[in-house]
């Protein structure tokens, strides 16, 4: 199964749309609730990152019997220092975004903690690609 979503930068009212849809699908196909939670947290954070930082982005979610694979491609400012961005508490979010309770420097660390495989590729001035893989088979 494959799903695609488009996300507009700055559109906070629809942040969470992709996560919510994917949560429903995973529930319907009886995926372990613990796995669903991990997918939802990772996808939500990645969605919010596009809304908070990028101009726009596209999300692709591919669900196979073994795993959930999520790819997010955005066009935006990119990440200058990926290593720093992965640190808890580091944030470049605007004051408006922070006032809403986002931008606490927890997004990428939250994704990392919930993903089995997580890669970030970014080019400053162009955009960022995240790939998140979460296994749905119980491998301890």
């Amino acid at each position: 199964m494959e799903f695609k979503f488009h996300v507009e930068g700055g559109d906070f009212t629809s942040a969470g749309t992709a996560s919510s849809q994917i949560k429903k699908v995973l529930k319907q196909i009886n995926i372990d609730p613990i796995i669903i939670k991990r997918v939802v947290v990772a996808l939500y954070e990645a969605e919010v990152n596009i809304v908070a930082h990028a101009h726009h982005g596209d999300i692709k979610v591919k669900i196979t019997p073994q795993q959930v694979y999520i790819r997010l491609d955005d066009e935006g400012p990119g990440i200058e220092n990926v290593e720093k961005a992965m640190q808890k508490g580091f944030s470049t979010a605007s004051s408006k975004v922070r006032e809403m309770g986002f931008g606490a420097g927890m997004g990428l660390p939250n994704i990392k903690e919930n993903a089995d495989i997580f890669t970030v590729r970014s080019e400053v001035g162009k955009g960022t690609t995240l790939e998140i893989t979460i296994s749905t088979v119980n491998n301890g």
Partner: peptide
């Protein structure tokens, strides 16, 4: 902090906050 709740609040919890915007419902 929304990411804090997203990452760490347990199912069935009551969430105490001063954030009033729509994203709290999404979370």
């Amino acid at each position: 902090l929304l990411s804090d709740v997203m990452g760490f609040a347990a199912v069935g919890s009551v969430w105490i906050t001063l954030q009033t915007h729509k994203n709290v419902m999404a979370i």
